[in-house]
Design a protein around this nucleic acid. Structure first.
Lengths: 147, 147
DNA sequence: GACTATCACTTTACACGTCAACTGATAATA
DNA sequence: TATTATCAGTTGACGTGTAAAGTGATAGTC
């Protein structure tokens, strides 16, 4: 019996997986000069946007487990980028002055880096299309995760 | 001064990152019943397609570092799914009978799982478009990695 | 006031990824 | 033969993800 080796869906999945892996490599390499990783940038960026925010809320924003965000924040706190204030049962996260400064320093470069990677190979129209399709796909997947 | 918070490129990047993370969660959860992870499936699948293959070759196929593939294969060998045969300077990787059996058992289910995730939210036409755009993007990124 | 529940977070054990330093097999040369 | 280079893979230190068990603060109930 002849078995199907792949479908359009599985090919898409493969491309996305490889892209993510490779683009993280590039980003980490780039961010090394700022002494920060792409995961740390992602978290700091979300805090900067949504602060003050609880750990739970942050975990949801960056799609990471509670345990994962706990460890990440411990590191960022040790580095002096963020602070946690216990209030009632929850801890509220904010950037420290040093964290704000770091983000100011890094943000535009990382944004330019990501933007260039896409601009180099896709037209504006193509980017809009890709964004719409990826949004559909991601939202569908997100809904399934909530169960 | 008003700073730009994001570009189409960075929004795409975010969607892709979140999708990857969430879809890996779902896949791992699904594959748990087969006692295998999505990373292991990916590697076994590549071996099954390209065997016999060297560790170097395999590392490139799955976009993982030499060290990473070495550890992964050590695990898979311990589980009895693959074997490594030293020949000259290189080690050639093949699936064992048990590995073949595992893949036969898992493959179609994982393929169906991935396919469904995409079919649920995108039309055939949209899938073709997404595949083409992701291919462009991934290839562009891949080229940059080679330097 | 003591018991229990619950929420928010932490910790542990482990998978999987990186880089950089190391090892082992072969080849090439003095 | 001894020295050195090189290629292929391994290992160590560490970042980041998970699940599941543990902890500490608060609330509700007997």
């Amino acid at each position: 019996m002849l078995l199907k080796k792949h479908t359009l869906g599985s090919l898409i999945w493969l491309r996305i997986t490889r892209f993510t892996q490779q683009s993280n490599l590039l980003s980490n390499d780039f961010l090394k000069s700022f002494d920060i990783t792409v995961a740390q940038f992602d978290v700091l960026n979300q805090i900067s946007t949504y602060q003050p925010v609880t750990q739970n809320g942050l975990a949801e924003k960056v799609t990471v487990s509670e345990g994962g965000i706990s460890r990440m924040l411990a590191r960022l706190e040790k580095e002096g980028y963020i602070q946690r204030k216990q209030d009632w049962k929850t801890k509220w996260i904010t950037l420290t002055a040093e964290g704000e400064k770091k983000m100011e320093e890094v943000f535009e470069h990382q944004l330019a880096f990501q933007t260039t990677l896409v601009n180099e190979c896709l037209t504006g129209e193509e980017q809009k299309t890709l964004y719409n399709l990826m949004t559909k796909l991601q939202k569908n997947t997100e809904n399934k995760t909530r169960n």
